[in-house]
Lab assay of single mutants.
Amino acid sequence: RKWEEIAERLREEFNINPEEAREAVEKAGGNEEEARRIVKKRL
């Protein structure tokens, strides 16, 4: 699934746990840019 690939990239890029990465992607509706913004806000 594409969402899992996005979550994996976010996890590696921001050094967050898989659960946090998945939550961000879900919140963003699968949009990678939006997920990235969500993760950055949390850091």
Rank of each mutant, 00 (worst) to 15 (best):
R42D: 15
E33V: 08
L10R: 00
G30W: 03
E8M: 14
R11F: 06
R36P: 00
R42T: 15
K27N: 12
K41A: 12
N15V: 04
V39A: 04
E34M: 11
R22M: 15
I38A: 08
E34H: 08
R11N: 03
R9T: 06
K2N: 12
G29E: 11
L10D: 00
N17M: 11
A24W: 03
K27Q: 15
K2P: 12
K27M: 15
E26N: 08
E32V: 08
G29W: 10
E8C: 10
G29R: 13
V25W: 03
E4W: 12
G29V: 09
E33D: 13
P18Y: 14
K2W: 12
R37V: 07
F14Q: 02
E4F: 13
A24S: 05
R42L: 15
R11K: 09
W3S: 04
R22N: 09
I16V: 08
E23A: 09
A24E: 02
R1S: 13
E12P: 01
E5R: 07
K27W: 14
E20I: 10
R9S: 10
K27D: 14
E32P: 07
I16C: 05
L43E: 06
A7M: 13
G30D: 02
E20Q: 06
A24R: 01
E8S: 10
R36H: 04
R37S: 09
I6N: 01
N31G: 03
W3L: 06
E26A: 12
E23S: 10
A28I: 01
E34T: 08
E33K: 08
K27Y: 14
E33P: 06
R11I: 14
E23Y: 11
E23H: 09
A35S: 04
N31V: 09
R1C: 07
K27T: 14
W3A: 05
R37E: 15
E13P: 00
E12V: 13
R9Q: 07
E23I: 08
G30E: 02
N15A: 11
K2I: 14
K41F: 07
E26V: 11
W3C: 04
L43S: 03
R37K: 12
R11V: 15
K2G: 13
G30K: 02
E19T: 11
N15D: 14
E23P: 01
R22E: 08
R42P: 06
K27V: 13
K41N: 09
R22L: 13
F14M: 03
I6Y: 03
R37L: 10
P18N: 12
L43T: 04
N31F: 05
N17T: 14
E4A: 13
E20D: 10
E8W: 13
A21F: 02
L43N: 04
R37A: 10
K40Y: 15
E33Q: 12
K2M: 14
N17C: 05
E26P: 00
K40N: 12
R9A: 09
R22A: 11
N31L: 06
A35Y: 01
R1I: 13
E34P: 01
E8R: 13
A7E: 11
E8L: 14
K41Q: 10
A24F: 05
K2A: 13
P18L: 15
A24L: 04
G30N: 03
W3H: 07
E8H: 12
A21W: 02
W3P: 05
E13N: 04
E19V: 09
I38F: 07
E20T: 07
E4K: 11
A28V: 03
E20R: 04
I16R: 01
V39F: 03
E19C: 03
R11D: 02
R37H: 09
P18V: 14
G30R: 02
L10F: 02
E4I: 10
V25N: 00
R22S: 08
I38T: 05
E32A: 07
R36V: 07
R11W: 12
E33Y: 12
P18A: 13
E5I: 10
E20W: 15
I6E: 03
E19H: 12
E19A: 12
V39D: 00
R22T: 09
R9I: 08
A35R: 00
G30L: 03
K40V: 15
E19P: 05
E19W: 12
E5C: 05
E13R: 05
R9P: 01
I16M: 05
I6D: 01
I6W: 02
P18Q: 14
E20V: 09
F14S: 02
W3F: 10
F14I: 02
E5T: 07
F14D: 01
K40F: 14
E19M: 11
E33F: 09
E19K: 11
G29A: 13
E8D: 11
E34R: 09
A35K: 00
I16N: 01
E12W: 14
A28F: 02
V25T: 05
V39T: 05
R22G: 04
E32R: 04
V25R: 00
F14R: 00
E19S: 11
W3I: 05
F14L: 04
R42Q: 15
A35F: 01
E32I: 08
K40A: 13
K40L: 15
E23W: 12
W3E: 06
E20S: 06
E13D: 07
R11T: 12
R42F: 15
A35T: 02
F14P: 00
R36F: 06
N17S: 12
E32L: 08
E26Y: 09
E19F: 11
A7T: 08
G29S: 12
E13F: 06
I6C: 03
A21K: 00
I6R: 02
P18I: 15
E26K: 09
N17Y: 09
P18F: 14
E32F: 10
E12S: 12
P18H: 14
E5H: 08
A35D: 00
L43M: 07
R9G: 06
E19D: 14
I16T: 03
A7V: 11
K41G: 07
R37Q: 12
E34C: 06
R42Y: 15
E13A: 07
R11L: 14
L10W: 01
G29Q: 12
R36Y: 05
R9K: 11
A7N: 03
E34I: 11
